[in-house]
Amino acid sequence: MNPISRRQMLIRASAAGVGLAGLPAFLAACGGDDSKSSGSSSGTSTKFTMQAAWVNDAEFTGYFVALTNGYYTDQGLDLNYQSGGPDVIPESTLLAGTSPLALTTPDSTIQAIVNDNAPFVIVGAQYQKNPLGVVSLKKNPINSPADLVGKTLAVPPSNTVSVEAMLSISGVNKADVNIVPYEYDPTPLVKGEIDASVDFTTNVPFTIQQAGEEATSFLMYDYGFTIFNDTVVVTKDALKNNRAEIVKWLRASRMGWDENFKDPSKYPPMFTDTYFKGTGRTIENELYFNNAQMPLIKSDGGIYSMSEEAIAANLEALGAIGIKGTRDMFDTTLLEEI
């Protein structure tokens, strides 16, 4: 089962806390904060907080590598890494001022800019391709949207619009696909009650494997739903006042990811007793995840790169589901300074 499992929505929540400002001291004292910060801070290092998009798993390996190897410290940053969770909205920490930088989903971020004038700027993208895809069993494979005709596809309610966009871009009539709600549980797929489900291709095939079946999948990205994921978002204020720190963070994090992908099987086991301790997930799962995500994160332009074509593709895909973003919501100049 996998109820509110991660990626319940393509729009996912994250970001632990918001707004400590002025809260009664006694609560703050009781509250404590267990986020990890990198090693010891030398006299010159600046405290810098980032809000992750979910609880600790392989999705954030690059940051753990950078923390462990002291890349942030070398840049003069004392990184305060805040884990996320289902009720934690990453963008909220930006609005509340508790974190100057958060990992988000581009659709929720751009929607917030459009609808609420939220002062957000996207300065990088961890996933060049969103890991969301159509997962099926090898013995009954669905290899493209066309294969879905006449089949039953389980879709998380919040992703229905994206899936319909993908189908119409691929020339498939949505009436020909039986779309049922997906509750993040691979069991119906394994039992053959449904033919395919929409989930994270980097993660759920492992669980299916554990249940004794082989999975196959394709990315929605490859069939028209061309969006990033884990976009690096900062506030306009932070961009003005903390630009140097943000660039340092991007540099150190890129080093962490590059180091991680030299051998994607090296680091997850090293975090068994640190970042991945007690998460309830197995190291084998993280190894699968880390290997599966490599092609989705790596980019010719370097980690986090946002090419003009990719930005245009994002805007077009989001436009197809009614989110009208513009080019000026992305700022690629910080990446140039790395």
Binding site: N2, P3, G17, D34, W54, V55, G85, D87
Partner: peptide, 21 residues
């Protein structure tokens, strides 16, 4: 704890274990 925010807590552990079959 189910809502997330910090790494530790029985609820967080349960949350991470939910998708593990």
């Amino acid at each position: 704890e189910f809502g997330g925010g910090t790494r530790w807590g029985l609820g967080t552990y349960l949350l991470g274990s939910l998708g593990q079959a």
